[in-house]
């Protein structure tokens, strides 16, 4: 078993049920862990709090994008209809607010939606084509009946032995190392299986 420290990128633990996972996440939060993530087949109530996650800033992104869309739409129409190419349409003034409202509304919605989708990508670090957890064979259970938590090696407190002990004490049913390289993974990274 080659133990090149540099190729280990994290430690993955599986728990029996959502309650155990929430307990484990709270313990990690209380122990000051920062770079860890939980993987579950469905949204688990109270998980955000257990992991110590702050409220998403996405709302502000959407709000600012919406304002940009609305004011941009108004500015664009004013420029087109009243400045650059004034044209009398059904006897209305060049700058007719009521006629511009639909476009302002649509652009507000469009840019808000862009802000929501792409902002969500950004905060979720998407698109991400690969992550070492996918080398784990058991990890496919995360879409079915597996409840996982992984501490990444970028966490200041990352330490294979200590983290393993912590997971054991929290009642993990399966613990394994996450590696950068698929070949190494095949060599056996499983630390503990119950």
């Amino acid at each position: 078993m080659s133990e090149k420290k540099g190729s280990i990128v994290g430690i993955l633990a599986e728990f029996e049920n959502p309650a155990a996972l929430v307990k484990a996440a709270s313990a990690l939060r209380d122990n000051g862990f920062k770079d860890f993530d939980c993987y579950t087949p469905f949204p688990v109530h109270g998980m955000d709090r257990a992991m110590g996650l702050k409220r998403s800033k996405l709302g502000f992104v959407v709000g600012i994008m919406g304002l940009l869309g609305g004011s941009g739409g108004l500015l664009m129409q004013w420029w087109m209809s009243a400045v650059d190419y004034p044209l009398v349409i059904s006897g209305k003034p060049f700058f007719s607010l009521p006629a511009f409202i639909p476009v302002v509304f649509e652009l507000t919605v469009l840019l808000s939606a862009f802000g929501a989708v792409f902002g969500m990508w950004h905060f979720n670090r998407l698109p991400q084509l690969h992550h070492p957890v996918f080398y784990s064979e058991r990890f496919s259970k995360a879409t079915d009946d597996g409840f996982f938590v992984a501490i990444e090696s970028t966490d200041p407190q990352f330490d294979v032995e200590k983290n393993q002990e912590l997971f054991q004490s929290l009642g993990a049913v399966h613990i394994e190392l996450l590696k950068e390289d698929e070949e190494e993974v095949k060599e056996e990274a499983v630390l503990e299986a119950v």
Partner: peptide, 12 residues
Amino acid sequence: AFSQFMLIWYAN
């Protein structure tokens, strides 16, 4: 409210 107003205002 705006949908009601807009169509009436525009058609005149």
